[in-house]
């Protein structure tokens, strides 16, 4: 990471908080009575899901801001957030079935939460694939902003799916009304994992944003070289 020395404090902070969260998840938080050890997946599964949702909210915000201002910096924020979001969403879609098999007896079911989350994961891919296939930066930014804004409709559906429809996925343990909630040590571990992921998200978005700036510089230099070549011939 030599090229990103200015991000070193953020990277170190993320590493430190994630280490604290791991301690919290494995040693500090007690073993859950019903599920046992397998419940420890929850700390880094549910928080990854929350980061996936936040990431797409950043895609939405970046997309709206780009369309309002036509400033490509907002487009770069949306792109970086979609890519980081895809990483967190992929973590959710792999760790979820690993938890589900021993607890539910099945790897996957098309219930409201799982399906809407799968759609979110697919939207991240669609958003990034679209960007890969449109060459002109302004057109790419406009088209992907439209997809980013339309795709964000899925975010509240994912969030409310376990409140609107009671299907296979567990009911919300935080903010789920009477009977929901976590024991204090579990909540501490959960919050540490969330903060650790949030810092990692910030690292990813910063790094990816810088790469996008470098890509813009490469395009500009290549254009200048072409222009020089034309003026010579």
């Amino acid at each position: 990471m030599r090229a990103h020395r200015s991000l070193a404090p953020l990277i170190w902070a993320a590493g430190l908080v994630v280490a604290v969260a791991l301690y919290g998840a494995f040693l500090y938080a007690p073993t859950e009575k019903t599920m046992g050890t397998i419940q420890r997946i929850f700390y880094f599964h549910a928080t990854a899901g929350m980061m996936g949702l936040f990431a797409f909210l950043f895609v939405f915000a970046g997309s709206v801001a780009f369309l309002a201002t036509r400033n490509l910096r907002w487009d770069r924020l949306a792109e970086a957030s979609a890519e980081a979001g895809l990483v967190f969403n992929s973590i959710v879609l792999v760790t979820g079935p690993i938890w589900a098999k021993p607890v539910w007896g099945i790897w996957w079911t098309w219930d409201a939460r799982l399906t809407s989350f799968f759609v979110l994961w697919f939207l991240c891919w669609a958003y990034l694939l679209l960007r890969a296939y449109v060459a002109r930066p302004a057109r790419r930014a406009t088209l992907s902003a439209v997809v980013g804004i339309l795709g964000a409709i899925d975010v509240p559906i994912v969030y409310f799916s376990i409140r609107w429809w009671r299907t296979q996925h567990p009911a919300p343990v935080i903010g789920g009304g009477d009977g929901s909630g976590l024991a204090a040590p579990m909540m501490h571990a959960f919050l540490a994992a969330f903060v650790g992921y949030a810092l990692l998200f910030a690292v990813f978005v910063s790094l990816r944003g810088r790469l996008a700036e470098a890509e813009t510089e490469v395009d500009a230099l290549a254009r200048e070289i072409r222009d020089e070549g034309r003026s010579l011939s």
Binding site: M1, A3, H4, M35, G36, T37, I38, R40, I41, F44, H45, A48, A84, V87, S90, I91, V94, T95, I98, W99, K101, P102, L200, V203, F204, L207, R208, R210, L211, A214
Partner: peptide, 29 residues
């Protein structure tokens, strides 16, 4: 310690995903 294998597998997935993405960003940079 029922389910320890699943917990290990899940956390392995988490770290592999995060590490590979970080390395990919670094290589591209």
């Amino acid at each position: 310690m029922k389910g320890l294998g699943s917990v290990f597998a899940a956390y392995l997935v988490v770290w592999v995903f995060l590490f590979v993405y970080m390395m990919r960003l670094d290589a591209k940079g």
